[in-house]
Nucleic acid binder design. Structure first.
Lengths: 192, 192
DNA sequence: GTTCCTGCAAACCATTTGCATTGAA
DNA sequence: TTCAATGCAAATGGTTTGCAGGAAC
């Protein structure tokens, strides 16, 4: 069976260097700006999680199910407190502790990936989503995803030459996004 | 005037893919494993810091001087508490708060770079040290530095294609270092 | 002198944990 | 029926901050 992966907002996947694509308003320090196509996967995240738990003799409870469903319902970056708030707004009974505990499990299960760009840990989909890296705007905090296959090769070559066996990597490019740069320029030469 | 930069432990700088070089004991979760040549710089870190402070109308005090001297006396990764301990062992009167405050200044001044691999922030030399990236052993916590010029090009190409103006990047390869891999293998097939 | 800096202790804030209770298998 | 999960509140641990006294410019 094929899980249709109802992720939102997919764009150009870009093999060597992907074309530009920038969001409109740069003010709120929120993330997103999704560019990649979700992968077709044969099991739903929930099912995948249940299996992971079963192997360890652990249980898929109501709060865990609500959480994993909610998280994979929209493709975006989020942190523990945002998630807690969203779940509670929806009337789901999930405490902050359980959110933290479950997020840790989802990372161990390979469903989510951690991203430490600020003091709060951000999470993103790993299961059903292609390997990618991030551009991080230091002005507005926007996170843009991109995919570049050279990076993987580079990572392998470097690891090999250092006797490392790579299991993953993080490549984060920090800078100013196009929208913020334009705002800056407009401020410098204002229309009188 | 040329500052001779008394950094310790330099090794192969490696342009495209540097040769392997691995430390001996992988147990303690401490960092290091330096591979790059320090750069020749025209001002000492202390002098550079003094200038930075002067511009902002701030002062180079005794604790700050002790700190910047100590930090640039040896090339290694360290965190705030390690540094506080080392300074106090040497009889320098620097409180933890001042260490935190001064580290932040040194980052702003471009003398140090922050590295967030664990829950504690690690610091490393930026001034007088070439741009580089890191291999991080998930088993023993060792950090190995490497330098690869393709990364910079990749970063520029990707940034350009996304309308970003890059100001920096972090490329961290996670995996198992050679020493830890050997330990694992020995454990799997023990000598009876 | 004025302004900035220091140390101390307290505050902060994200995350973790102990424990009594509840619930999945 | 058993072992694990939950929620709450308290603990943790790295980092920041308010403030009164102390130093640089």
């Amino acid at each position: 069976m094929s899980y249709p992966s109802s992720l939102t907002l997919a764009r150009s996947s870009g093999s060597s260097v992907a074309p530009a694509e920038v969001g409109s308003d740069p003010r709120p320090p929120v993330h997103h700006d999704i560019e990649l196509q979700p992968l077709q996967v044969d099991k739903s995240p929930e099912e995948k999680f249940r299996e992971f738990l079963a192997i360890r003799g652990e249980k898929l409870t109501a709060p865990r199910r609500a959480l994993v469903r909610h998280v994979f319902n929209a493709h975006k970056h989020f942190d523990a407190d945002e998630l807690t708030a969203e779940l509670q707004e929806r009337g789901e009974k999930v405490s902050r502790s359980t959110v933290y505990r479950t997020l840790r499990l989802l990372v161990e299960a390979g469903l989510l990936r951690e991203l430490r760009l600020t003091n709060r840990t951000a999470y993103e989909h790993d299961y059903g989503y292609p390997s990618h890296d991030h551009l991080h705007c230091s002005e507005c905090g926007t996170i843009v995803e991109f995919s570049n296959e050279d990076i993987r090769n580079l990572r392998e070559a470097i690891s090999r030459s250092h006797g490392f066996r790579a299991s993953g990597h993080k490549f984060i490019i920090t800078g100013i996004c196009e929208a913020c740069r334009r705002l800056r320029n407009n401020r410098r030469r204002p229309i009188i």
